[in-house]
């Protein structure tokens, strides 16, 4: 009878980190489906291509670091990163854009910092931000929601050809996103813009649906207690509040809250990016601040910054300040009058 000496606890809750990641991947499916519905095969190809690259890079790096490959692959974190980045890319992003993005995300942003759990920045967002800065043309080449165009969706093969640059993307398939359009409305007032481009307001419907689909996945994760409500709720609420404030003060110059909420990557970011636990604040109070400031930053960068969308930058900025938030938002321990603050004392 060989009895090992093992310390308590002797029972563990079933459920593993890999499971958590899988659940998150699963939760992106409604969003992915919605994207494909409106933009064709592009998003799906992006995601699959990104996932393949991610596994490749992950295996290579783990080999280089001389770690057990299957053990680390089984946490699914690389695939999740790839899925998130793939979802964020424009539908017809060229293959090499994805390649560079995934390389930066997996090799630089994740493994150079010590691998899963040690990366200060959200890998997918690091990859995305780098691509946005380096290849602004490719990264803003969005297609019009196809249901609204006569030409319909490109087929699978055609889309593949476009992505792997065997053929050029027909001009009819490029169009700026609503955010871009609004950003570059120039001297037009908001009302004029709306009335001028019916396509824009119709395109908005597609974005409503996509955001709704992502929110659905987020709710699923909330119910499964993959993460707590603090970050998504505080982020969305703060964005609604600031945009509501400016819209209320000057509706002709600023976009309404609903527009901000549903365009770009806000909902996707709130439920899938900002909630990445590795790079977010830890305590419940910290998470509230974390989310709220992301919401605020998104609005600031969108309205007064150079880039039409700002989720990646806002999240990265807050990743940077998460440790600080953690030190200053610690919970009050049982039996203590107040919580400790700061690094010491």
């Amino acid at each position: 009878m060989a009895l090992l000496r093992i310390t308590s606890p002797h029972i563990l809750k079933p459920g593993r980190t890999g499971n958590v990641m899988l659940q998150v991947i699963l939760a992106t499916l409604p969003g992915l489906a919605a994207l494909c519905y409106y933009f064709g095969w592009g998003p799906l190809i992006n995601v699959v291509w990104a996932a393949m690259l991610a596994v490749l890079f992950e295996v290579a790096v783990i080999r280089l670091r001389k770690r057990p490959v299957t053990f680390y692959l089984n946490d699914y974190s690389a695939i999740l990163t790839a899925v998130l980045l793939g979802l964020a890319l424009p539908p017809f992003a060229p293959w090499w854009v994805t390649f560079i993005g995934i390389f930066v995300a997996i090799v630089v942003a994740k493994h150079l910092y010590g691998g899963l759990g040690n990366n200060p920045f959200n890998p997918a967002m690091v990859g995305y931000a780098l691509l946005l800065i380096s290849f602004p043309v490719e990264m803003t080449r969005w297609a019009p929601p196809s249901l609204l165009t006569e030409s319909g969706n490109l087929g699978l093969i055609e889309t593949l050809k476009v992505i792997f640059e065997i053929v050029d993307l027909p001009d009819a398939y490029t169009m700026a996103t609503p955010l871009d359009t609004f950003k570059h409305k120039g001297a037009l007032t908001a009302e004029e813009l709306w009335s001028q481009s019916p396509l824009l307001s119709q395109g908005l419907d597609a974005w409503y649906a996509i955001s709704g689909a992502f929110a659905l996945g987020g709710l699923y994760l909330l119910i499964r207690k993959i993460y707590t409500w603090h970050i998504p709720v505080s982020m969305l609420v703060s964005l609604i509040l600031v945009s509501g404030f400016f819209y209320g003060s000057d509706p002709s110059n600023y976009a309404p809250p609903l527009f901000h909420l549903t365009t770009g990557a806000v909902v996707f970011g709130a439920f899938f990016i900002a909630t990445d636990p590795v790079t977010a604040a830890t305590s419940n109070k910290g998470k509230l601040f974390f989310g709220a400031i992301i919401g605020l930053l998104i609005y600031i960068i969108r309205t007064w910054g150079n880039y039409p969308d700002a989720v990646a930058f806002a999240v990265l900025l807050m990743n940077l300040s998460a440790p600080f938030l953690d030190y200053y938002t610690r919970p009050r321990t049982y039996g203590h009058k107040k919580s400790n603050r700061g690094i010491k004392g």
Binding site: R16, T17, G18, V20, F71, D75, S77, G115, L116, G117, N118, I226, Y227, T228, P277, V278, T279, A280, T282, S283, N284, P331
Partner: peptide, 12 residues
Amino acid sequence: PAQSCIRCGNCE
């Protein structure tokens, strides 16, 4: 075997 802490906050 223990994996990396993903700071999921479950413990907290």
